[in-house]
Structures are given as C-alpha cells and as structure tokens.
C-alpha cells in the first residue's frame, strides 16, 4: 500500500470533518499499522493499543464538528493516541497496583530485529547497539523511534511528545552523539556499507 502523503491526508481530514465517513476510514487504513506499532512500543499491551486506537477514531467521528484543521494528520493522531494510552495506563496503575501515575513514563525498548544491524553486523555489534539504545533515557528512545521508524520532523516529534522543537532537536542530537561514541567500533567496521 502506498503511504499517504501529508497533503493527501490533510485533504482527507477536511473531508472527514465535513462528514465524509469514507475519508476517516481511509486515514484509519493508512495509519493503523504505524499507530499500532507506536502504541505497542509505548505500552507493550496489544489489547490496550487496539482498544485505544478504536476509541480514538470513534471519538474523532463523534466529535468531528468540533475539530479544527490540522497540518500533519499523522502527528495529530500519534499525539492523540499517546494521550489516550497515557490516560489508560494511568488508570490501570491507579487501580491495579496503586502506584503513582505518570502519563509520561512510557518505555520504548528496542529489540534487534528492528534495526538493519541485525542483517549486517555480528552478534557483538548487535549487542553493543542494543545496549546503547536501551541505556538511553525514555524520552530519547521515544524521540529516536519517532524519528527513525516514522520519519517525523523535529517539529512533529515536539508536537507528539508535548515538548518544544529545540528540545527535541537537542534530544535527538545528543542521542546520536552518544550512540556515535558507543558505536565507534561498529561504525568503523561497517563504514563501507554507507557508500
């Protein structure tokens, strides 16, 4: 399936606000997979993610008349899903475990299948990269995910995570520097691949 361009999704968004059910269904179709993987990264709970995405779109439909125009629909949806999941996990924590609730305490954990290194490097290189990634702060991991898995611009990552753009820029840059140092060895070994 062709990914939906930002222009196309903005048009679909307008059509959907005007009451066109098919337009919202197309957006659902276009972004479901990305939303699902992102939600799963944040919570690790398949059922919860499925329900939250479903609720999110049903709610959008019911409240379509009160919605405003958005520039980048994908970022809007990611942000909304993140908020939904935050509310849910907060509630779950409050009720199941009586732990303090932080809607921001998502854990993005990386596994080696997700990176090209799995197909390129040897076991030691994989272990180094994963260890480095999983030592990053939660925010760094999430920003990195949004950047490299979903291709969001800094400005959109800021929107999704509720930070300002400069903070995201710094966050991603610092992350890349950390990784660069940790992976100096790996990078040397693999530098031939970039050409």
């Amino acid at each position: 399936m062709q990914p939906i361009t930002d222009e196309h999704s903005a048009q679909l968004w307008e059509a959907f606000r005007g009451g066109e059910a098919r337009a919202l269904a197309t957006l659902f179709d276009g972004y479901y997979e990305a939303l699902y993987h992102y939600g799963l990264k944040l919570t690790g709970d398949e059922e919860l993610v499925k329900d939250c995405i479903q609720n999110l779109f049903q709610k959008l439909w019911r409240r379509r008349e009160g919605l405003r125009a958005v520039q980048v629909v994908k970022a809007y949806l990611f942000k909304a899903l993140r908020r939904h999941l935050g509310d849910e996990t907060k509630l779950l924590r409050q009720h199941r475990y009586l732990l303090p609730a932080y809607s921001d305490s998502f854990e993005v954990t990386y596994s080696h299948e997700e990176f090209l290194i799995a197909q390129q490097g040897d076991a030691e290189q994989q272990a180094r990269l994963l260890a480095a990634l999983n030592r990053l702060s939660k925010r760094q991991r999430e920003a990195l995910y949004l950047k490299f898995f979903d291709g969001f611009a800094y400005e959109r990552i800021a929107e999704v995570m509720g930070l300002n753009t400069q903070s995201v820029r710094n966050l991603v840059f610092n992350t890349l520097q950390v990784l660069r140092k940790v992976l100096a060895m790996v990078v040397l070994l693999l530098s031939g691949l970039a050409a």
Partner: peptide, 19 residues
Amino acid sequence: FDEAAALLQLLATGQSPRL
C-alpha cells in the same frame, strides 16, 4: 558523510513485525 550515514543507517528501520 560516510561516517554519519553509517550511523544513521544502523538506526533506520529494519523489519517491523507485520501486523
């Protein structure tokens, strides 16, 4: 150029599990 590209490439998506 190559050094930066190599690092970024490591982070680029491998295989997301199919839904």
